[in-house]
Amino acid sequence: MIHFLQPASWSEALAMKAAHPEAMPIAGGTDVMVEINLDLHRPAGIIDLTRVPELTEWGTDDGLLRIGAGVTYSRIINELGDRLPGLAMASRTVGSPQIRNRGTVGGNLGTASPAGDAHPPLLASDALVELASNSGTRRVPAREFFIAPKRSARRDDELIAAFLIEPAAGPQQFSKVGTRNAMVIAVCSFALAIDATRKRVATGIGSAGPTPIRATDAESFIEGVLDEGRLWERPAEVPTSAVTRFGELVAAAARPIDDVRGTAAYRRHALAVLARRCFTWAWVDYRRMGAA
């Protein structure tokens, strides 16, 4: 028997989670229902969050966008695509239109799979995950949120309320390799965000390690190149050798394995290519912005 709970408000949801910490929260159901149907996971209880209005809202919070955990990928693409281009690009690669109409970033975070498509852009934008329980609310940086495959910093009594993310302050890119041209789980993925204000380059690697990973060495390397060449101020082409090195450092940051979707060697190789291409595209956009 599965215990089925259906809160009508956020406070009721938190109370139910406190009383039933073992209950699995469900929003779009695009992960949870698949697991149940495949008999891979049989939760003792389910908390249906689809009737909690607060979760489907988004707004601003002290300069950040605060996006409810129940906002679907389709809405992120349509309503926030201009402010969060990287996350919108990642959202477009999620499943099929039907899945994007149901699936949520909150659910992606809840599953905390290393292959979650939303995770690399959240890492690259230094997003915060807002966790709530009866005993209070805390905001965990995305880079501290993922702990192990399908394990996160969320405690059993907590629900994911929202994530907070800065609107893009420069060009963003996202690329994902899959063995089908649509509706595919990532073999590996890569997100890149250029912050023109702070003069920073940030990254996120997906599906090539036990958790989503930031390639910090690659970030500082390319920032060094840009700083040294004063390329932020006088945007010019970045030397090919530097872009290649950036790709190599991204690949080196990954910790991939061989599995049913691809080999570790291929994943490393592909990440280097994706990192090079994403940086090149983003930098072209940055130079164009500068010119404008």
Partner: peptide
């Protein structure tokens, strides 16, 4: 992107 290898996963712009 739907005309490119990789489709909307945005892996190539012709490269």
């Amino acid at each position: 992107l739907t005309t490119q290898p990789g489709g909307v996963s945005n892996t190539t712009h012709g490269e």
